[in-house]
Design a protein around this nucleic acid. Structure first.
Lengths: 226, 226
DNA sequence: CATGTTTGCGTTATTATGACGCAAAGTAAT
DNA sequence: ATTACTTTGCGTCATAATAACGCAAACATG
């Protein structure tokens, strides 16, 4: 019987699918690689897991070099095991997906990050490794998650109009949803609450501003779409 | 910059939560360890991932020594990263959960398996490593999955009565569900179809036998319970 | 001020759900 | 076989949720 740690182990990477939303467009953070393999190709941000590091610490380390620090939603997505997913050798990838409001972050200016940029999910370039599979799974997860868990506000400012939330849902799900039924459903669920404030218009003030209801009982929210 | 594979990597294990259902009892396959750590304690079946192996191959390897071979449902559950989850050193665990019909399998007789047995999920012993967390997550996943995806039949014989399916749901969810509403919901969804056969009784024949509808459009099925 | 758009609040028809009635079929005991 | 009890299959009905859409006040634009 072999002793512990005599086994050769596959390498272990963490890869991230970072979603951002801005101006009615859902986008993903991609890196333009400056080294082989896939030099000059696009990939998801990632890194090898350090010996003492937890998954979320690795996520933080990856994000810090690419984005400023701030609050963000992170959730484990899936672990990928295709033996040939990395041409350099066997690498298992544990993936996370993140939701950020690009307005609250900035793509960091360091030399490690001058290659990072947002890409419309509807116009994705070819991706290196098996990152297309990872991206597809992340988008699928986001689309199903948003139906039964209030994650939409993670992508918006602290205060937002009903129309902005509505458009976010239509954009992510890529369907049209009746504005009035959406409004009723969202308000009935107590997903968000009215702040009492109004957004400033040019001459006067117009739509009500809402914010996420932190006291929401989690499973009060379920959106059906057909 | 370090070269590839010069990094020391955490070890990578695959652990399984195998659910079985028999006689109105949901149970999990556990191993009584015959070596340290946790010698004589209970753990989930698992193994270290081999260098060239895929996750599902490792699952098959683990199961083959414990159970006879047969059709079974396997789905990736989650990856666990607590640095101290294994006292021998850093081990990442990629976990899967499985659904089997214990009637179709037998706990294998080999020396590697004389320590395997089924345990009622309601009377679980202490588990070694972080396997309690893994088990909890698996049960949670099974309970939510069964509401929107027809996995119940994986735990039953090829043909089963409506009452058997109903009792399975009540057992897994640990709630009581109105028999007549359950029946209507399940039949409306086309989750299962009537085989036209009847189960043999002592003097006569009694309840209709149903089987899983393989032509089911996936998202036709959603069970609400309150 | 005239015109078109956005926002907030309704109504209505249809469908889904929860609670439960009831009788035919099946079982067990005499 | 007769009786008493249980299981199964099917149905009803009140209530809740949903989809489709009307409408007017608030707002924006020229």
């Amino acid at each position: 019987m072999k002793q512990f740690h005599e086994y050769r182990n596959p390498a272990l990477a963490i890869d991230l699918v970072v979603f951002g939303y801005h101006e009615n467009m859902l986008s993903v953070l991609l890196l333009n690689r400056n080294e082989e393999p896939f030099k000059n190709g696009w990939t998801l941000p990632g890194a090898f897991l350090q010996m003492e590091e937890r998954f979320l610490e690795a996520c933080g380390r990856i994000l810090k070099t690419k984005l400023g620090i701030g609050r963000l939603f992170l959730e484990q997505l899936y672990s990928f095991d295709e033996p040939d997913r990395d041409p350099r050798g066997r690498v298992i990838s544990v993936t996370y997906f993140a939701l950020v409001n690009p307005g609250k972050f900035e793509i960091a200016a360091g030399k490690m990050a001058n290659d990072a940029s947002w890409h419309d999910v509807k116009k994705m370039p070819e991706l290196g490794f098996d990152h297309k599979d990872i991206f597809r799974k992340a988008l699928e997860r986001l689309r199903s998650k948003i139906l039964y868990f209030p994650v939409g506000f993670e992508l918006l400012d602290d205060m937002f109009t009903m129309t902005e939330l509505h458009e976010l849902y239509e954009c992510i799900l890529d369907i049209s949803i009746d504005r009035r039924n959406f409004r009723r459903k969202i308000l009935d669920s107590e997903y968000i609450v009215d702040t009492g404030l109004k957004r400033e218009g040019l001459r006067n003030r117009h739509p009500s501003l809402y914010k996420f209801n932190k006291k929401l009982k989690q499973n009060n929210f379920h959106l059906n779409v057909s």
